[in-house]
């Protein structure tokens, strides 16, 4: 599936939730079930700056597609990392770098997060795109 198709799928899923609590519960479940983060990459350079919680993201390239691993000490944030990974992992890096992540607004993620926390979210998205951009440049060389 393309990044757009995955986003549309997420937007549809969230449209089914009737209450805010349901959304939070879903994100908590996503956080709890996110694939284990590779411990070898729990290093300071993989920490994303600008987040109130600790967020680690590690990128890898396999067969021309970028894959992300992520983790956080906050379960909610980990759930959001999970949504990002679901959207962007396994995609061509050029498309990740240019992705318009409209699902963030459509599922009301920023309403669930305050501005302070939304800054952290922006930092996370920026970092994911920077990794993808770096791979795109590498491939071009």
């Amino acid at each position: 599936m393309s990044i757009q198709q995955i986003q549309d799928e997420i937007v549809e899923e969230f449209a089914l939730f009737e209450s805010k609590d349901d959304k939070y519960n879903y994100i908590i479940e996503l956080g709890k079930h996110l694939a284990a983060y590779p411990e070898a990459h729990r290093t300071p350079d993989k920490l994303i700056k600008g987040c109130q919680s600790q967020v680690w993201v590690h990128p890898e390239m396999h067969n021309g597609l970028v894959h992300f691993h992520g983790d956080s000490d906050s379960i909610l944030v980990k759930g959001l990392v999970g949504l990002m990974i679901r959207t962007l992992s396994g995609q061509p890096p050029a498309q990740v770098a240019e992705a318009d992540l409209y699902f963030v607004d459509r599922i009301g993620m920023k309403q669930m997060l305050s501005m302070n926390r939304a800054n952290g979210l922006a930092a996370m998205i920026k970092q994911l795109k920077l990794y993808a951009l770096a791979y795109t440049m590498q491939a071009a060389e």
Binding site: K20, D21, Y24, Q52, S53, S72, D73, S74, I75, L76, V77, M112, L113, S114, R117
Partner: peptide
Amino acid sequence: GLSALDIGMLLDA
């Protein structure tokens, strides 16, 4: 087992 951030966000809700 809980981060303070999670507690704060869920209380804010």
